[in-house]
Structure formats: structure tokens, C-alpha cells
Design a protein around this nucleic acid. Structure first.
Lengths: 184, 184
DNA sequence: AAAGTTACTTACTTAGTAGTAAGTAAACAA
DNA sequence: TTGTTTACTTACTACTAAGTAAGTAACTTT
């Protein structure tokens, strides 16, 4: 992958997280990288293709992280996961799901499918983490682990959105309660 | 207010909730209402003016509801509040905060301020509801009521976003746990 | 009856948007 | 050394966006 191509993808990632998929244009990428918009079309024929690459990169990063954390106790895995969100919060980003879910109806069918896949992958990982963590007495919670996983993801996602509006303290207040409620 | 003006506002509300503020255009409003785009500019000179009216309408509806529910027990007030979100979920809508927070950086300063005001208003109401509800033994939860209010709002907001991607069961799974966790 | 006001339409401008076709310079392969 | 591929640029198209100026028909006020 060429250097320019990588820069395009990571700038697109940032733009999706800061302005939203429909609010950024090729100019927002070509200007700072000092290339022409046709250079972006060379690497990604359509905007959807670019969006797909951003999503694929996120999915790869997810797999990478979960593999890296596999041996850690489940409560520490969850803290690492929260750490990713904390970092995004500090950078003024929202998560990809938080940015793309509101725009879902305007996305290409292939992007919609990929967003679904990403949601399923995150939910699967979180469910396993909570389930194993409860078995190993590192978490305390009632009910189905899948349901609880949905709640945790929902909170992390919203904490970034609300931090936009209410300031970064929102993230801290939400994530702290989240871990407390799980007895972590 | 003329009939057309009301129709413009409620269609804009719907479009913000379904496609997002930056993804809908005046054509999306003028075509179904069978007027020209200049008719929209007559009532709302700029897109920001239109967005402001949608936000003002939402704030009025919020005040209306909280006044209407004032005499109810707090757990029933919360269930009513969840009911508003359930209805949106069934209509394929997300909430205004969930739609506008990701686009926050692209909004006009006046819209940003109004979104902040809306967030503060909701948070204030929810904090009061939880605080009073705990005092009257209708809710059971630890910690600061304001923090817990943030958590509840965060969950309701995300439940609509995730329902887009994962289907409407996400809303039910999240809202059920929410009420259970409060002992409601 | 005259003058204004309301609620538009007609017709337009300006400034983008994603996307494309053809050309080019440099690196690489046969 | 020739041919091919890579990674672009130049220069463009077709379209859509928000926004505006001027005109008009109907209703309201004086």
C-alpha cells in the first residue's frame, strides 16, 4: 500500500469521526495531503470504497487488539477496551459506530453490511469477555451476558457522543459507573 | 404558523432523524410537499434556521411532557420517557441528540448552543426524576443521581442508534435492563 | 377602493460535489 | 532496451447544494 493511500484512509477515518461520512468531501482529504481529488479516486473509485477500507481497517484493529489481550484477565481486557474509547474521547473523535449509525440509511448496501458486521463482531467479543469474566468471578452482573454486552457497548458509544456536547467529563462519568456496575 | 411551515418543520425533523442533518436537502422537503425550494427559504432563510426551529419544537415538546407527567410516580414518569424513545424506535427514527451529536462540529454556533441546551434540559429533568424517585423508594441505585441520569440518557440514545444496525430488539434489550437496574 | 402583508413561484447564481478520461513521469520487468 | 505497471496530474463533466431577486395572486387592513 502506497504512503498516500494509507494517509487517505487514516484521514478519512478521522473525518468520519469528526464531521461524519456525509459531511466530509474529497477536498477535505486532497488539500491537506497536497494531492488532487483524482488521486483519491485512483485508490478508491467511489466514496463507498473509501468508507469500506476505513471499516475494514477498524475490523482488523479490533481483531488485533482482542488477540493481543487474550491472555489478560477479563476485567483488564475491558479496561483496555475502554482505554481505546478514552483515547478517542481525548482526540475529539466519536467511534465509527456512533458516527455511521445515524447515517446508516444513506450508506451504500455494502457499507451497511460492513457496519452490521462490525457491530456483531464487537458484540460477540464483549459478550465473551463478560461471560468468561463472570465465570472467573471478575465481574458481577445479573442476566444474559449478551444483553449486558449490548448495554456496555451502548454506554461507551454514547459517552463519546455526549462528550461532544457536554464536554469530556461525560465520558469519565459514564465509563466509571459502567465498571462499577460490573463490580470490576 | 402556516400549514406549509408546520409541514416543513415536521418533515425536517423526520429527515434529521432518518438521514442526518447534513444528508438531507431542501429538495427532500420541497418535493413531497409539492412546493419550490424557495418556499422553504421564505419561511427559514438558512438551513440553520430550519434546524433551530426543529430543536425549539423538541424543547417545547419536552417541557410539555414533563409538565404533563409531573404528578405521576417517578418510575411511571421514566416509563413514559422510555415510551417516547420506543415510539421513535418503531418509526425507524433516532433521537435528535443521537443524530446531531456526531455532526456537532459541522453545525452553526447557534445550533451547537441549542443542542447543548437540549442536552442540559434532558439531563436536568432525568436527574430530578431519579433523585426524587430514589427518595420515594421507587428507584434503587448507588451514587450521584446526575451521574446515573447521564447513564440512562446515554443508554436510551444508543439504543436507537444500535437498533438501526442490529434491529429493534436492541432497544428492548437495553431499555429492559435499564429499568431493572434501577429496580423500577 | 387603495395599500400593505402573506405566502408563495419563477428563474437564477454561486459554489460546491463525486466522478472520469486522457496524459505523464518514474519505477519495474522481460 | 522496450513494454508495462504504478501513482499520480490536468482538465473536465454532470449534477446538486444552499441561497436570492423579482414577480404575483390572494387575503387583510385602513
Amino acid at each position: 500500500m502506497s504512503e498516500t493511500k494509507e494517509k487517505i484512509v487514516s484521514l478519512a477515518d478521522k473525518l468520519i469521526r469528526v464531521k461524519g461520512f456525509n459531511a466530509f468531501s474529497y477536498k477535505d482529504i486532497s488539500d491537506p495531503l497536497q494531492v488532487k481529488n483524482a488521486a483519491i479516486h485512483y485508490h478508491f473509485p467511489t466514496k463507498s470504497d473509501l468508507g469500506m477500507e476505513v471499516l475494514d481497517k477498524e475490523l482488523r484493529s479490533l481483531e488485533e487488539n482482542s488477540a493481543k489481550w487474550k491472555k489478560l484477565p477479563e476485567d483488564e481486557q475491558l479496561i483496555k477496551f475502554c482505554g481505546v474509547f478514552r483515547k478517542h474521547c481525548n482526540n475529539g473523535n466519536v467511534c465509527l459506530m456512533g458516527s455511521l449509525a445515524p447515517d446508516y440509511e444513506t450508506l451504500s448496501p455494502e457499507m451497511q453490511q460492513k457496519v452490521q458486521q462490525m457491530a456483531a463482531t464487537i458484540l460477540e467479543w464483549m459478550t465473551g469477555c463478560l461471560e468468561q469474566g463472570r465465570k472467573h468471578k471478575r465481574f458481577r452482573f445479573k442476566g444474559d451476558a449478551g444483553d449486558r454486552a449490548l448495554l456496555v457497548i451502548s454506554n461507551l458509544q454514547s459517552s463519546l457522543l455526549l462528550s461532544r456536547v457536554l464536554g469530556p467529563s461525560a465520558f469519565n462519568r459514564i465509563s466509571r459507573q459502567l465498571l462499577e456496575d460490573l463490580g470490576a
